[in-house]
Design a binder for these strands. Structure first.
Lengths: 156, 156
DNA sequence: CTCAGAATCATACTTAAGTATGAAGAAAAA
DNA sequence: TTTTTCTTCATACTTAAGTATGATTCTGAG
């Protein structure tokens, strides 16, 4: 019963509007029967009113659907494979900060004397650090130390 | 001029329709003036016609809107830094095949004696090749030679 | 405060790397 | 065929790297 009303809501409202309007028409018809020279105005009013009703009804019927168009756009972001320092490996080998500094300069091709000057220490100190590094990295010479450290990612 | 017509197409068509309908009304009005008892039918016809016009006009006006949504999707591309042998650089430096072999083994951390054994030559030969390499690469020691060769992409 | 680890430095010594000079043979280019 | 380049090897020497041993100072954790 209620569902019948909801489903036909528009039709019922439309019908009632028509009934009211027809009643209004009859009433206005009788009044214009008395004032006979305003016939054109009367008819013009009817035309406008019913057109307005038509527009209103149509707008209600034809609900504008929003059409959504989804466009997926791929954006390529380049991610360079940069050196990632492996701190875990450094800790595992128990290499100290100073030892790492020596190793880094060694990998750049500096001699022991040059490393000593860069770090403001004596040549003996560098020899000591080198020797300790070789033990920790289990290598025999600086070329091996540098190569191994790069593989282990503790230097760039 | 033409754009004026296109922009106001609906208004113009609507106006013309109104003019024609008014003309029709006047014509029907004169005919029903002769047959006086059909007044209600005449007015009812007007109401129906103008409502129909209203509906038609409204349906034309109410165009469904299109909504465009752009979704950006990020795709990460890893840039692999693979070794690409630079033969041009090798030729520029005039490094011979044998010299390159020595350089490659040197970069792996082998001592001169070990390189000699690997290539079935004497230690003196390796020292000669090394010396020549250092001159060509403009370096003072093997660590510098290896580092520079990697930068120049003549060894991996 | 004590102790362990890191950093620094030294001496004495050995080994490896690197330089200078020269020679011979093989292969490629003119 | 001659010349140039590459490859190999040697001798003598210097320099740098690497080893062994020991000592001192500083810093941070317990």
């Amino acid at each position: 019963m209620v569902s019948f009303f909801l489903r036909n809501k528009l039709v019922i409202v439309y019908g009632l509007s028509m009934a009211i309007l027809l009643f209004l028409l009859k009433w206005l018809e009788l009044r214009f029967m008395i004032i006979n020279h305003s016939m054109e105005i009367y008819i013009g009013a009817i035309a406008v009113i019913f057109m307005g009703i038509g527009i209103w009804v149509a707008l209600k019927l034809a609900r504008p659907k929003k059409e959504t168009v989804v466009i997926e756009k791929e954006v390529f972001v380049t991610q360079s494979a940069e050196f990632v320092f492996d701190e875990k490996e450094l800790n595992r080998l128990a290499i100290s900060k100073r030892e790492l500094e020596v190793l880094q300069l060694m990998s750049k091709g500096l001699s022991n004397q040059e490393i000593a000057e860069a770090l403001f220490v004596s040549l003996n100190t560098i020899k000591t650090h080198s020797s300790n590094l070789f033990i920790k990295l289990d290598v025999k010479r600086r070329t091996q130390a540098v190569e191994k450290a790069k593989q282990l990612k503790i230097i760039a």
